[in-house]
């Protein structure tokens, strides 16, 4: 599903964010990637989204070697990955329904399909009653649920979540994690980058630890 083989990334300024990083995530897994600030976690997400190109090494996602994905093919590639950010990244001038529907419009889905699928996904994240609300009218946890609904709506095989609980209080953070766990139970591979060790310990999932751009630990949850 996701395979990194001796991947390194050095920025133009000479900073080496990732060095000789190798890991393998199987289909249907739920994996936490943990590490301190500056450990290379965000670079890893950017490499997986093909926002960055590795300086060396090989990345294979969904059976596709990212070195062979050209600029024009990036949108097609990203549609198979749902992405969730710490700061939600919702379109502020569009309501909940439109934010989620937008992801389907982007992939040129039929209007009938959009009308059917969006309410279904909103009910999965528990936000159907608030479909007309604007992001600013929602709590942080609700906004993150909209972002998850948007990531889910196109049935991706993988969900990448970059610090999804970073802007949330304890209860909301737990709600989001439970939601991601439910999504994983339905068969979607979930990769969560976080530094919230309390949640990581409680969830008992696989934990990959990154330090100074290298994998220093890879433990199965118990």
């Amino acid at each position: 599903m996701i395979k990194l083989d001796k991947v390194s990334k050095t920025y133009e300024a000479g900073v080496q964010a990732v060095r000789d990083l190798s890991l393998h995530i199987m289909p249907g897994e739920f994996v936490f990637v943990v590490g301190d600030s500056g450990s290379g976690k965000s670079t890893l997400i950017k490499l997986l989204l093909k926002e960055l190109t590795p300086t060396s090494g090989r990345i294979v996602v969904n059976g596709k070697d990212l070195a062979g994905v050209k600029h024009k093919q990036i949108p097609e590639y990203r549609r198979k990955i749902g992405v969730v950010f710490q700061d939600f990244r919702l379109l502020q001038d569009r309501n909940v329904y439109d934010n989620v529907a937008f992801a389907m419009r982007v992939v040129d889905s039929a209007p009938r399909e959009i009308k059917k699928r969006v309410p279904h996904v909103l009910s999965l994240v528990g936000l159907q009653p608030k479909y007309r609300a604007l992001p600013k009218q929602l709590s942080g946890g609700e906004q993150q649920r909209v972002a998850i609904a948007r990531a889910l709506v196109n049935n991706p095989k993988i969900i990448l979540a970059d610090e999804p609980t970073g802007n949330l209080d304890g209860n909301n953070a737990w709600e989001i994690m439970r939601l991601l766990d439910e999504i994983n139970q339905r068969g979607t591979t979930v990769v969560v980058v976080t530094h919230n060790m309390e949640i990581v310990r409680s969830m008992r999932k696989r934990v990959i630890t990154i330090k100074k751009g290298m994998v220093t630990g890879d433990e199965e949850g118990m």
Binding site: P75, Y77, R78, F85, F102, A103, V106, N154
Partner: peptide, 16 residues
Amino acid sequence: SEEIAIMKYIGAKDAF
């Protein structure tokens, strides 16, 4: 810029 970045992250083609 933020709006454009969001569109790109969720797989919008340049033309869209």
